[in-house]
């Protein structure tokens, strides 16, 4: 009973604008967000795969569509989601086997993830828009 009362009186702060996440939390929540984004877009990717394989016209239409800037932008954003999810996922796997789990090392590996994503995105931007 005593425990219940203290739990109820615990201060709550859910004002998102006053919560400042540390870098490892930022990488973690973006891992989630990018994962959800990749899941949501999945049916469209299946549709693209189908279109590109069904016949030559479908292939040409898909290739032409991917040359238009709104689709280029979408592919750029999806590439960001993929590479963030990929690198941050490798980091989570490393932590699952108890590698780099101290706070200091976790903050360091978060920065490494962000830098890897940034560098890969430079290549992606060059490949898509260059």
């Amino acid at each position: 009973m005593i425990v219940k009362k203290t739990v109820k009186r615990r201060p709550k702060n859910l004002d998102l604008w006053t919560i400042r996440l540390p870098v490892n939390a930022v990488v973690s929540i973006m891992h989630r967000a990018s994962g959800v984004a990749l899941f949501v877009i999945q049916p469209w990717l299946c549709w693209l795969l189908y279109q590109s394989l069904v016949n030559a016209q479908g292939y040409a239409a898909t290739a032409a569509r991917l040359q238009q800037w709104p689709f280029k932008l979408l592919v750029t954003l999806l590439s960001w989601a993929f590479f963030h999810h990929f690198y941050a996922g490798l980091r989570h796997l490393a932590m699952d086997v108890h590698w780099m789990t101290s706070l200091q090392k976790a903050r360091f590996s978060s920065r490494v993830v962000l830098w890897l994503v940034a560098l890969t995105m430079l290549l992606v931007l060059w490949a898509i828009w260059g």
């Binding site: 899941f39 999945q42 049916p43 299946c46 795969l49 189908y50 394989l53 069904v54």
Partner: peptide, 22 residues
């Protein structure tokens, strides 16, 4: 909704790879 999407996607890919004659 998520379950249906997952199942639908899986069946779609199975069909693309082995159902439709590419």
């Amino acid at each position: 909704l998520v379950d249906v999407t997952v199942l639908g996607n899986g069946l779609a890919v199975l069909w693309i790879c082995f159902g439709m004659n590419v």
